[in-house]
Amino acid sequence: MHPIEIITQYWPRLLDGTLLTIKLTLLGALIAGLVSPAFALIRVHASPMAQAPLRLYISFMRGTPILAQLFLIFYGSGQFRPELQELGLWTFFRDPFNCALLAFALNSTAYQTEILRGGILGVPQGEIEAARAVGMSRLLTLRRVVFPHAYRIAWPALGNEVILLMKASALASIVTVFDLMGRTRQIFSRTFDFSVYLWAALIYLCITALFVLLWRQAERRLDLHIDARHKVRNANQPQKDTMT
């Protein structure tokens, strides 16, 4: 079959898969993004003993293949089927999409926590002291000073992590989720036409490229006030010169 024919005939399936890939990635990244700030604070402030379980979790998530983590959750849950049924959780674990989402969220949480920890540690101590000096409470300091700056520092690394998660989401196809990779394998097994893999590659690259553009746009918005300050400073420069 001609490569063009593949895309004209199978584009609805590929589109379907693409949307599922995006959904899986964004949901996973979002769940991890909601949990990781709290974990990152623990990693920065808690005593070493209190951190131990969290460090163990992060080390495990970073030291084992995502595929193994996915199998551990998807197939492993079968071993506890009666217990899970009793808790009413079996319907959750029976669905491969849920298992994949859980695995990716758990994995991404570990990475995002470490990235965000780096961001928090990168916030200059003076800013925090200044916030305390003007009478901000601890929580307000975190909300207004520490996190906004920490996210600005961590932003590029977080973008990389989301791209890694998007690539990892292709593994969901192995536990029979019909994401882009799953659809591609399905079409290949039907047509034995190799070009479908190349189309999938193209789509993955497009998703990555689009995401990089969007992420950079967001970064520009986060840094807007910094740009503005530089502009003001530059605008003031000639005035200062004439005054002296």
């Binding site: 084992t64 293949p65 595929l67 199998f71 551990l72 492993g76």
Partner: peptide, 29 residues
């Protein structure tokens, strides 16, 4: 990974064996 899968197929203890595989990868890392 595949040998683990084979073991799981026979013993029907997926969690035990995949956890073992994870531990081995973890140790290597």
């Amino acid at each position: 990974m595949r040998m683990t899968k084979v073991a799981v197929g026979v013993t029907k203890q997926p969690f035990t064996f995949y956890l073992l595989a994870c531990m081995i990868y973890w140790a290597m890392c």
